[in-house]
């Protein structure tokens, strides 16, 4: 089983992976708290990017409303914790089915009624917007004035209630990234992953070789939604406050898909590399601007936009396939 996991991995690729993983494991002992906070953000985007990539990169279904699943996960776990004192671990068990149900409803409506391409993307935005306005009026969890988790200055960490110092959150999100990565690799090499790729490439041809495309597209949406909801749980307990206007905003949906797009849609390393590049670059720029004494809201986003423009024009398949070719790791695309 373990050996099968590494099958087909090139030796120097594996070495690279080990070094990267070791560096990430050791990071909290090396970097200061500012860098640690940035690493947490990077890993957060790597994780949601990986989850989104299942839907778009593997199964070819463009979702522009993934903030919906983040928000549902965040609100479900936070509400259970604040209102009933339930551990976020139990909250996760609730958040996953909630988000999966939402994904299943959207997927069912779209795929049964043959809403595809751009129309599908807009349908996903519509549902996220629905949720945003809905939660704005959902006063049980604070409505538009926000929902807050109790905060204190923690010196110790309690993993069961996820109340504690950033280091705990760092290792939590790192674990999530590793699990998501391994899961995606297993999926990609399995029957379901191969069927997803076939659907992404040509749905009619996929049907002609016996693939029940409706069913497999549903699997992709539901799995992606469930995984994304866990990012929401993390988000809620890390940031301790939730505003519908922010959590469900379309800008969040777009932010969380940038990493896999820049890194390389449909690749395993794309979301991770993309998250490092994007957050790394934007923080660097932020630091430079601060050093110059310039504090302009929006400058960071303009930079995001320019990066995105550059990548999509110069490296249409993303940065990872290009890097992989340079490293001789066998980039998939010519």
């Amino acid at each position: 089983m373990i050996a099968a996991l590494f099958e087909g991995v090139l030796r120097h690729g594996l070495a690279l992976l080990v070094v990267l993983f070791a560096a990430l494991l050791a990071a909290p002992y090396i970097v200061n708290s500012y860098l640690l906070a940035i690493l947490i953000i990077i890993l957060y985007y790597a994780y949601v990017g990986q989850a989104w990539n299942i839907m778009m990169g593997f199964a070819g279904q463009l979702s522009l409303g993934h903030a919906l699943y983040v928000g549902l996960g965040a609100y479900t776990a936070a509400a259970l914790f604040v209102k009933f004192g339930l551990s976020p671990w139990i909250g996760m068990l609730a958040a996953i089915p909630v988000a999966m149900t939402a994904g299943a409803i959207i997927g069912f409506l779209a795929f049964r009624f043959r809403v595809g391409g751009v129309y599908f993307a807009i349908l996903t935005i519509a549902f996220a917007e629905f949720a945003r306005v809905g939660f704005d009026h959902f006063t049980w969890v604070g409505g538009s004035s926000g929902f807050f988790l109790p905060v204190a200055n923690y010196t110790t960490s309690d993993l069961w209630t996820l109340r504690g110092r950033p280091v705990m959150f760092y290792y939590l999100i790192l674990t999530m990234v590793v699990i998501a990565f391994v899961l995606c690799r297993i999926l990609l090499r399995s029957r379901i992953g191969t069927f997803w790729l076939a659907i992404r490439e040509d749905e009619e041809a996929a049907r002609a070789i016996g693939i029940d495309t409706f069913r497999y597209k549903m699997y992709a949406v539901v799995l992606s939604a469930g995984m994304t909801s866990l990012a929401g749980v993390f988000f809620a307990f890390y940031y301790n406050n939730l505003f519908p206007e922010q959590v469900f905003n379309i800008a969040r949906s777009i932010e969380l898909i940038l990493a896999p797009i820049i890194g390389g849609i449909g690749t395993l390393f794309g979301p991770i590399l993309g998250a490092f590049l994007l957050t790394g670059l934007s923080e660097t720029m932020h630091a430079i601007l601060q050093g110059l004494g310039v504090d302009v809201p929006g400058a960071k986003q303009v930079f995001y936009g320019l990066c995105l423009l550059f990548v999509v024009m110069a490296l249409p398949d993303g940065v990872w396939p290009w890097v992989a070719r340079k490293l001789g790791l066998g980039g998939r695309k010519p």
Binding site: V302, G305, L308, L309
Partner: peptide, 12 residues
Amino acid sequence: AVAIIMVNVLLI
């Protein structure tokens, strides 16, 4: 990307 640039240039 174009949209993000436009919004934020206006914001600036």
